[in-house]
């Protein structure tokens, strides 16, 4: 947990609007990631997804990404050429997105999509890629990989689709996986099994995981460390096990707004937002 894989320093993401106003989606976020599971929690629009996409330099124009540096091992991702960056994407840092219904190409068999990712970075032959595809499908606990390989995305369920997505993104054996709300579009019943698969693979391969979610409970049980984002900034960072000791009023508000089976309440607390939270400087989330 001591070795630093990724270090993001003072990250800003801005979107100029046609009216001349600039929307700041991420405002000076700093954190680092080791071989651990780092959770980024926040509400919609808090900038957590944009943080993930900035690391891969996949924020599309007109969005602008700026940071002091984004160090991956000893190279600054921001200064890499697009060609060099493509060798990082998928190969060394990968990402799983929210809804497999939309994030898989509908006119390609899932097997081809997995093999494509694998062959791109390993230069493997077709035969080798086929073997790796079946292996990956087995690794994400798909029972009948030979059959599933030839299916199209619309022929698989959401849970299976997400496992295929994980298989595809982990096939080239990356060091960091960014999981952007990987279970939010899934039924509650399959959420746990998908999470368990991510957890097992990340541990087995000694990867770093950035787990982006809006689900506080989920992140608290699943991750080692948590960053809490609000309005484009990190307002608090803590060990997952000590989330209940969190001090920031926003975090406290979120915790109090959760229903608990062991302490039933007549009415759940509603959040009152202090404008000062927006302006307070970002807390750094270094190891």
């Amino acid at each position: 947990m001591t070795e630093e894989l990724l270090r993001v320093e003072d990250l800003w993401v801005r979107f100029p609007t046609p009216s001349g106003k600039v929307v700041e989606a991420v405002r000076g976020v700093s954190f680092s990631l080791g071989r651990e599971r780092l959770g980024i929690v926040g509400e919609s629009g808090s900038g957590k997804s944009m943080t993930g996409r900035s690391i891969l330099r996949l924020v599309r124009p007109p969005g602008q990404v700026q940071a002091k540096r984004i160090m991956f091992h000893d190279q600054d991702l921001l200064t890499l050429s697009e060609r060099k960056m493509r060798q990082v994407r998928g190969n060394r840092i990968s990402m799983v997105m929210q809804d497999p219904k939309f994030s898989l190409n509908p006119v390609m068999t899932v097997g081809r999509q997995i093999a494509e990712a694998y062959r791109l970075h390993t230069g493997a032959s077709r035969r080798e890629a086929k073997r790796a595809t079946l292996e990956m499908l087995e690794a994400v606990q798909i029972r009948d990989p030979e059959r599933v390989r030839d299916l199209y995305p619309h022929e698989v369920s959401g849970g299976m689709g997400q496992r295929i997505m994980i298989a595809m993104m982990l096939a080239p054996d990356p060091e960091i996986l960014i999981a952007d709300e990987p279970t939010s579009a899934l039924d509650v019943t399959v959420q746990t099994s998908v999470l368990r698969i991510i957890d097992r693979l990340v541990k087995e391969r000694g990867m770093g995981l950035i787990f982006i979610s809006h689900d506080l409970n989920l992140v608290a049980t699943f991750c080692d460390r948590i960053l809490i984002m609000y309005a484009g900034r990190v307002v608090e960072t803590c060990e997952a096990s000590r989330l209940h000791e969190a001090k920031h009023p926003y975090t406290r508000g979120l915790l109090n707004a959760l229903p608990r089976l062991d302490e039933p309440k007549a009415a759940l607390e509603a959040m009152t937002r202090d404008p000062a939270w927006t302006e307070a400087p970002s807390v750094d989330g270094y190891l």
Binding site: V88, D99, N105, H121
Partner: peptide, 20 residues
């Protein structure tokens, strides 16, 4: 979204556009 997926995989822009 699948276009973003293709980019995440590290495909060249040409492959993203013409293949996917």
């Amino acid at each position: 979204e699948y276009v973003t997926t293709a980019r995440v995989k590290g495909l060249s822009e040409r492959a993203v556009i013409w293949r996917h």
